[in-house]
Write a protein that binds this DNA or RNA. Structure first.
Length: 240
DNA sequence: AACCAGGACGTGA
DNA sequence: TCACGTCATGGT
């Protein structure tokens, strides 16, 4: 079986098991969004979120806050930013790093992340989402990566979930699962794995969004603790 | 009570 | 390039 059909089979198996995941969660910016309110921001079946720049900002900030951190802790910090009336570019520009650090404390790494957020706010002031959206995918990714605090995965999350550009997100769970299933080997880089998906799947934003979300959902079930994937049923389903 | 979480950066070799 | 240390709260 070739790689292309293997990846499709993997995707179909996961989405059949878990259903649409409705990423990225948006639960603060638009209280009129009923779907988002109902399930902590997840909006399975709706792919027209985010709709506003505030929501795009919420997604981007969330992506930074959740770096190597549970979404629960990140979401608490995100809600704290909102509760302090700081969920806007102008407000965050006027707020000191120390103050931001205090507000996002529950996310962990709060000093680092406060700086990263400041860097991003500075960047997004010069490169508003609309302007960013007019760049090619490659150019948008490059400028995002130039921000200190935005690495490959965070950049791809912003591109895929805030800007809806077809940039595949590779995270730790993705790598663990693909290794276990035998699709990749340990020495492959982020870019190589990303290329693997992007050259074997149609350039479909919805599929990219769901695929990454499904990897995380499945990873939480079977790839949290070592040895990874001991209880995973995927192998039996995927092989041959 | 270790161990891990939807990573990224700085450093030295 | 690359392995390794650092950053830190909160849940299991």
């Amino acid at each position: 079986m070739n790689l292309r059909s293997e990846l499709h089979r993997l995707y179909n198996t996961l989405i059949k098991e878990y259903g649409p995941q409705g990423w990225w969660p948006v639960f603060l910016a638009d209280t009129e969004n009923e779907l988002a309110d109902l399930r902590d921001g997840y909006h399975p079946g709706s792919y027209d979120i985010p709709k506003t720049d505030t929501q795009r900002l919420e997604v981007s900030i969330g992506a930074i806050l959740t770096q190597n951190t549970s979404w629960k802790n990140a979401a608490t910090a995100l809600a704290s930013i909102h509760d302090h009336g700081l969920l806007s570019i102008d407000k965050l520009k006027k707020t000191s790093i120390d103050k931001i650090a205090l507000v996002i404390k529950s996310a962990g790494y709060y000093n680092q992340k406060a700086r990263y957020l400041k860097n991003f706010i500075e960047f997004i002031s010069d490169y508003p989402f609309e302007k960013l959206n007019r760049l090619t995918l490659g150019d948008a990714r490059r400028v995002l990566l130039s921000v200190k605090g935005i690495g490959p995965e965070t950049a791809d999350c912003v591109l895929l979930y805030a800007l809806k550009k077809p940039s595949f997100v590779v995270d730790a769970y993705t790598i663990r699962i693909l290794e276990k299933v035998g699709i990749i080997s340990r020495s492959m880089t982020y870019h190589q794995i990303q290329t693997l998906f992007e050259s074997n799947l149609d350039r479909n934003v919805i599929v990219y969004q769901e695929f990454h979300a499904l990897f995380v959902t499945h990873g939480k079930c079977h790839y949290q603790r070592k040895p990874y994937g001991e209880s995973d049923w995927l192998l039996r389903h995927i092989k041959k």
